[in-house]
């Protein structure tokens, strides 16, 4: 704790801190926060928070899994795998996520019901909702960005390591599992931490296709109460806290893994 407080004790910092406290106090007193208890009590804020978090976690995990294969295909795959993987990453990274979301939801989503066999199938109950499209787009987006990162990471692992493993008689699968993948992941952990924050900051876009996430909840509050700034400020603060937690989490994980690289 001392290490944290000591740099805070300089005079100019104390003044800045006092100013910040005064600023937040001013926000608290002058702006209208009377709506807050209602929306905490009716569970809307919590529901939005939950949607944001599970969308983030699932798209992160599945996206990273896909990214490993995309990276591998580009780093060492035959051309008929490397080329599509490269193309996929370029298109995802070259177009706005908002456009991709709308393409899937309004574009693809309005094509599905044209086929009677989809409309009559059990899957339609899921396909007619909006969260599958949001999750799909977020996952593909994360996979595209991380696929590029993983490509670099795989290429960054020294050749000697892989040659040594081969000399030990390891199969290709074993090399990937024991040597190549762990070393590549270790290399990109700080990058992935930053990209996870980016992914969090992309999630509010799913509100534009009617998913009830944290951002959509703030829109509801704004429309119900005609109060503009307080819900947005609270929203910004919430995202900052989640960002802080992600950064902290990655710092802990980075400290856990040995930093010495081959």
């Amino acid at each position: 704790m001392k290490a944290f407080f000591a740099p805070m004790m300089k005079t100019h910092r104390l003044v800045l801190l006092a100013l910040a406290v005064a600023f937040f106090g001013w926000l608290w007193w002058t702006l209208d926060w009377s709506w807050l208890p209602d929306y905490i009590n009716n569970g809307l804020i919590l529901a939005g928070l939950w949607t944001t978090i599970w969308m983030l976690v699932v798209s992160w995990a599945v996206g990273l899994f896909l990214a490993i294969w995309l990276g591998l295909a580009q780093a060492s795959g035959p051309w008929y795998l490397a080329l599509p993987a490269k193309g996929f990453c370029s298109v995802i990274r070259g177009t706005p996520l908002l456009l991709q979301l709308w393409f899937f939801y309004y574009g693809l989503g309005s094509v599905f019901p044209e086929f009677p066999w989809i409309r009559q199938s059990a899957a339609w109950e899921i396909l007619r909702q909006s969260w599958p499209y949001a999750l799909f787009a977020l996952t593909l987006s994360f996979a595209g960005y991380e696929g590029e990162v993983m490509r670099g990471a795989f290429l960054g692992v020294p050749k000697g390591q892989l040659e040594a493993a081969r000399a030990y008689g390891m199969s290709r699968g074993t090399i990937l599992r024991r040597i190549w993948l762990p070393q590549a992941i270790r290399r990109v952990l700080p990058t992935i931490g930053g990209e996870t924050v980016m992914q969090l900051k992309s999630t509010p876009l799913i509100a534009t296709i009617t998913v009830l996430d944290l951002y959509q909840v703030s829109l509801h509050i704004r429309q119900d109460t005609y109060i503009i700034y307080p819900p947005l400020l609270l929203l910004a603060l919430t995202y900052m806290v989640i960002t802080g937690l992600i950064v902290l989490l990655f710092r802990i994980v980075e400290n856990q893994v040995p930093s010495k690289l081959g």
């Binding site: 309005s110 599905f112 007619r128 009617t210």
Partner: peptide, 19 residues
């Protein structure tokens, strides 16, 4: 209740059978 940003989008989803 499913809320949309615009009525045009509601109509679109109604035609698509999503509501």
């Amino acid at each position: 209740l499913k809320t949309y940003q615009t009525q045009d989008q509601v109509d679109q989803d109604l035609a698509a059978g999503r509501i």
